[in-house]
Amino acid sequence: MDLNTLKPALGSTKQGKRIGRGPGSGHGKTAAKGHKGQKARSGGSIKAGFEGGQMPLQRRLPKRGFTPLDRVEYSLVNLKQLEVFEAGSVVDAAALAERGLIKCACANVKILGDGDLAKSLKVSATKFSQSAKEKIIAAGGTVEEKA
């Protein structure tokens, strides 16, 4: 087999439409553009969102809200979700991502106080709610807040 003998499989390729090449092609005369009008002219295209000169929808609707530049997104984890860890283990972003509790190990993590904790864990996160801190310490664990 040589590269110059390779051909596509039968039926896998189609010939392109040859428009405007006479009446025998079935696409002669108006070249499949219909009769007259903007879409039949050369360069006749209408940009997306154009409503015939009427004020377009994206300009009729009010602008709303803004995106603060200093916003910090946190991945939220509740105390009841930490029950999957063994007693005495270190719980940080990498361990949470490994167990599928957060999407990315590089994320900022905030531990919330929903649920109870029966094990002593060493929990390391970016932020803690006050109730979460109290419950972790009450269970005999330690809290490490990273900046």
Rank of each mutant, 00 (worst) to 15 (best):
V143Y: 04
S75T: 08
G24M: 08
G16K: 11
H35M: 10
G53T: 13
G24R: 11
A9G: 13
V84M: 08
L69H: 10
A138K: 05
D2E: 12
A95F: 03
Q15H: 10
E51P: 02
V90N: 12
M55L: 15
G34T: 07
G28V: 04
Q15R: 15
L121Y: 00
A107C: 15
G37E: 09
A87R: 10
S131F: 01
S75W: 01
E144L: 05
L6D: 12
A32V: 13
A132Y: 00
A147H: 10
A94Y: 08
P56W: 02
L69Q: 13
K127L: 15
Y74T: 03
Q15W: 09
S120N: 11
S25F: 08
E134F: 02
K127N: 09
V143Q: 03
F128Y: 03
L57G: 07
E98Y: 04
A97H: 03
L61N: 10
V123A: 03
G140H: 09
C104P: 02
I19F: 13
F66T: 15
T5G: 07
R18G: 06
R71Q: 15
K33V: 04
V77K: 00
V123Y: 00
V90H: 15
G88E: 14
A32T: 15
P62S: 10
V123D: 00
L112P: 00
S75D: 15
N108W: 02
K36N: 11
R71H: 15
K133G: 03
C106H: 08
A87S: 13
K133W: 02
K14M: 12
E73N: 14
K39C: 11
S25M: 12
A32N: 15
K127S: 07
D92L: 00
A118Q: 13
L112T: 06
H27E: 14
L69P: 05
V123H: 02
A118P: 07
K17W: 15
D116A: 08
S124K: 05
C106Q: 10
A93S: 11
M55S: 10
L101H: 03
G26A: 14
S25K: 08
L69F: 06
K29G: 04
L112Q: 04
F128S: 01
G44M: 06
F85T: 01
E83H: 06
L3E: 11
E144D: 12
G140M: 07
I137C: 04
K14E: 11
L3R: 08
G53W: 07
A95V: 06
V72G: 05
G43I: 07
K146F: 08
L79F: 03
N108I: 02
V90Q: 13
K39F: 15
S45W: 02
A97R: 04
K47H: 12
L96W: 00
G100I: 01
G20T: 10
K47R: 12
I136Y: 01
H27P: 01
T5L: 12
A95L: 05
G16Y: 03
K135F: 01
R71F: 14
D2T: 09
D114R: 06
K135Q: 04
S42L: 11
I111N: 00
E144V: 09
R59W: 10
G24P: 02
